[in-house]
């Protein structure tokens, strides 16, 4: 301990401010909610220890939670990988532009993320009367005889939420990829073209992707957390609760127990389960990413 400090004190000092803030504002609250997940806690009375019963109830007795898990996994299985690919493809495509034009194009693609709750615009598109954009086009083109009640039919809810999430794809990972692409050593491309790389696809697989592995890892974590923690677009667009729980996700379930029913113990157990799903997904994805460019 003393020796480690003597040898590395500068490093520890650099980390210290972050470590203090991290422990106070992240680590302790997370540990506290894990402890709370083993209690029955209504935010008025002192928490009562109940062991694993919250977890057991979630897995065995809570049918709605199982629907939520199914919806969330389906949602994440589609939006996670597709968003990730979109972030990369778009950043890669605009990478060669001059900085000014690239900044403008980045703004264009990042616009849904910068304009706050711009996704509410989809409410106009999927408005259930004949004036909503989607309905008015379908009626005009003869694909429908009467306006479709988009968020009242359970088969439409999840697909629409997926569409909206894909539209919102180009966020943090997109910006990280743009910065990452700028960091790729340009001399590698020259060397590559001498070594017989013929087109942009080979260049991509053999040079670009391996050169930005850390950014790819970063993007993957971002994508996993965002695609598995969908809730706001569901609540805002499909309403809460949604028709036959068609837009119900793990996080809307958490929202229900945490902020409607004030059962913090149960809500914390939901958060813990979501956490384990994310950690598990992350392990698999990181393993897959190690193979890139090989």
């Amino acid at each position: 301990m003393k020796q480690a400090w003597k040898e590395h004190w500068e490093k520890y000092l650099l980390i210290l401010p972050f470590a203090v803030l991290f422990i106070v504002f992240t680590a302790i609250p997370v540990l506290a909610s894990i402890v709370i997940s083993f209690t029955s806690f209504n935010m008025l009375e002192f928490p009562k220890f109940v062991g694993f019963s919250n977890y057991i109830n979630l897995m065995v007795n809570d049918d709605v939670f199982l629907i939520a898990v199914k919806n969330t996994l389906l949602f994440a299985l589609i939006t996670g990988p597709v968003s990730y690919l979109m972030c990369f493809v778009f950043s890669w495509l605009i990478n060669e532009l001059s900085p000014k034009i690239r900044a403008f194009m980045t703004l264009v693609f990042y616009a849904p993320s910068i304009s706050g709750n711009a996704y509410l615009i989809w409410k106009l598109i999927f408005s259930s009367d004949m004036y909503g954009y989607a309905n008015s086009w379908l009626l005009r083109l003869g694909f429908a005889d009467e306006p479709i009640l988009w968020f009242d039919k359970k088969e439409y809810v999840l697909p629409i939420l997926i569409l909206v999430q894909l539209w919102l794809s180009l966020g943090v990972s997109f910006l990280a990829f743009i910065a990452g692409l700028q960091n790729v050593d340009k001399t590698l491309y020259e060397a590559g073209s001498i070594d017989g790389i013929r087109n942009r696809w080979q260049e991509l697989w053999f040079i670009t992707l391996p050169s930005m592995k850390p950014q790819l890892m970063f993007g993957a974590v971002m994508q996993i957390t965002s695609s598995l923690s969908v809730s706001q677009i569901s609540i805002e667009l499909a309403g809460f609760p949604s028709v036959s729980y068609a837009g119900h996700t793990i996080l809307t379930h958490l929202h229900d127990y945490g902020f409607v029913r004030y059962e913090m113990g149960y809500a914390s157990a939901i958060a813990a389960i979501l956490f384990f799903i994310m950690v598990f997904t992350n392990i698999i994805v990181q393993k897959a990413l190690r193979r890139v460019g090989a």
Partner: peptide, 12 residues
């Protein structure tokens, strides 16, 4: 810690 949802940590 990036994977632990912030809603339940709001109270602590």
């Amino acid at each position: 810690s990036l994977m632990f949802n912030g809603t339940v940590t709001a109270l602590p």
